[in-house]
Design a binder for these strands. Structure first.
Lengths: 221, 221, 221, 221
DNA sequence: TATGAATGAGATTTCATTCAT
DNA sequence: TATGAATGAAATCTCATTCAT
């Protein structure tokens, strides 16, 4: 299994979403919006939406609490923006991977890595998306759910394509497989706190192999 | 792969922990403790620890909010008790399964079902354990973490035993495999909200097969 | 100045109100009333009326909180009874002293000692009377105030008698003098917490002398 | 005994600490901190720390209860600030008096007046300091106790100096004398509620004379 | 763009009290 | 005589939000 190099440069230049931009872009209006949302993301991921206070966010950007309201209209709105960023980021990259030229196993490997890495490295907005989106008000929740489904469908399609190409076992249920694949990936969100053997990357590789071996079509011989 | 019938009835008679007892036990002191904790569990699971109010709990037991404090000392203490129950319940059953006489695949299948079913059927305390235990104060968190590790180790040991018996692939990493297995199971916690095809049971079965095929030792022929 | 021995045995046998009876009287109804009120007194003195909870009282008698209401009708009623005991105790003794046969200086010395000693030894009900009676409801406060005035008048009369007898300076204002005398005594309530030189008794003696020298009639020569 | 005029104007211009400023100072940040603490002082003095509610304080400043927390961090913190102000105020003035040029009797007279007047005129923070400081949490209590000791030592030193100068009786115990002097002064805190004969000022003068006569060195003749 | 001040609405927790047993 | 269970009323404190500047 190759590394799937053609997608090793995910489209979103920001390289796996650092959440706290290294250096401020030269200028431009609403410059600090990014900072604020990154702070919100990390606070929501760490403390949970309801466990986080706007003061926590303000502390992290070095701003007064009241000033935040220049950047968002309400705490809930901030959560929506954070979730949206989390999922859109990954959607963009995943679409690029899916549109690539490799085989299904390579693609799935790349997708899993793209999903696991930011999680295990504590990327805030994806974690916030995963765990906190359920606290969004109805409408926002629906909007974010649509994005989530879009993401899932990409993965599902990759699986389906792999089955048709004879690369994956023909008896898979693509939806279920997608759920299993992403389920395993999401589990990785909880690992950094554990004393695991091996680096995160080794673990991710192990996981990828484990899953792919499970769904690969039996080798003819 | 057989169904592993000998363990399909988990030891704890209460069968998948109904969380809200159908009828009150005859009498005895502190009778309503169970009721109260079950209500707390379901509210925490549904709304998140910080999103839930003690009033929510009181409403669900039909008690005044202040009266709850007769049964627990603080909201956090209630969360700890809920988490403890969630994990201890499953530990008991899983130990029984692991101590059974079947093969590793059968055991893992039973374990997965035991883990998935209450989750997908909305069992409160296990969900609360999974998602809310991180909001416990340090000490309580450590106590609960010890229980969690105990559970994981049971599963891990089943995997290792299966490998030794030649029933599972010899190149597995038992810890990693356990993580993957439980990761998939936990993912099921999010499914009830989705429009899935097929009954929960079919889905669970599909998942179980998927995973076990992935880790089963290649059939000699 | 002699010790005023004729009054060294105050009338109330209980010897300066131990607040916690050494051994329970053989039997009789409402036996534990004493215990309960003593506990209330010490808790009120220590924590202040509003700072003390009925639970604190219950803890000190080894009783459940609800059981206290068998002994008093409300927390405020308990305070009134405590205050009443505190002041009546001292009134009884002080009247005995005042009715004695010695001179005014001897009597005042005895009165001061009787007032200072229980305070400095942490007697609860007198302290409660001094500091907490202001939290009584209007009517109860008036009743207790009447007792307080009675006490003050005794002391005042001793002063006046001493002036008439030529034993005290003729230019004293009896009321003011009484206030000063009791003011000094009450100050002693705060001393046990301080690192003072000398035993409490030495201090009390010093105080007594100080005051009496101040108000004694100049020795003719 | 002269009036000790040179010190009759205590240094702190605010003249006996009015506690509720007549008119708001022109502007500046945190303008209302003073108002809030003055209100807290008067409420604590009147109702006792535990008997007072933050709502009482808010009512007195004309602010909503929640807004108070903009000015202090907790009710206990408010009490500490109040106590600190109460004692620091008096320390400043008393140091000025003690450093003056008159004799010990003049100085003690001035000190006593400075102590008695605000008490009898209901100055809140000094009363709060006297009666409520015992409800402070340990650390704060220690800090305030240090200030209290500083005050006492000033008075003690004045007494000692007067003894050395032959102005006060040579057989006094300076500590004890200081306790007696302040004890009498503190008693005045309870007088406004009483129907006393004469104006407060006459009473204070009477007290001062009484005490000073008691400790003055016998006039040689 | 940012902030100080304030507030309304609640959250958790405490506590005196009641009452059936 | 005593208690377990429950409750109403409040108390302290938190927090998202507003608004004038």
């Amino acid at each position: 299994m190759t590394d799937g190099n053609m997608i090793s440069r995910p489209r979103s230049g920001a390289a796996i979403e650092p959440d706290v931009p290294a250096r401020r872009p030269p200028a431009g209006p609403r410059r600090r919006t990014e900072e604020v949302l990154a702070a919100a993301a990390s606070v929501f991921a760490e403390l949970g939406f309801h466990g986080a206070t706007t003061q926590d966010i303000a502390d992290r950007v070095g701003m007064r609490q009241a000033s935040l309201y220049y950047y968002f209209v309400s705490k809930e709105a901030a959560l929506e923006q954070v979730c949206q960023r989390g999922i859109e980021h990954i959607i963009g990259d995943t679409e690029a991977i899916a549109a690539g030229t490799g085989g299904a196993t390579d693609k799935l490997a790349a997708i899993m890595r793209r999903h696991i890495e930011p999680l295990s490295e504590n990327s805030a907005s994806l974690r916030a998306f995963l765990h906190e989106r359920r606290f969004l008000p109805k409408d926002a929740r629906r909007r974010i759910a649509r994005l989530a489904r879009r993401y899932e469908r990409i993965v599902e399609n990759v699986v389906a394509a792999g089955m048709e190409a004879g690369e994956l076992r023909p008896d898979l249920n693509p939806t279920l497989t997608m759920d299993a694949v992403l389920g395993i990936c999401n589990a990785a969100a909880y690992w950094p706190g554990k004393e695991r053997v091996g680096s995160m990357r080794e673990i991710a590789d192990g996981l990828v192999r484990l899953v792919l071996d499970g769904i690969a079509a039996p080798k003819a011989h």
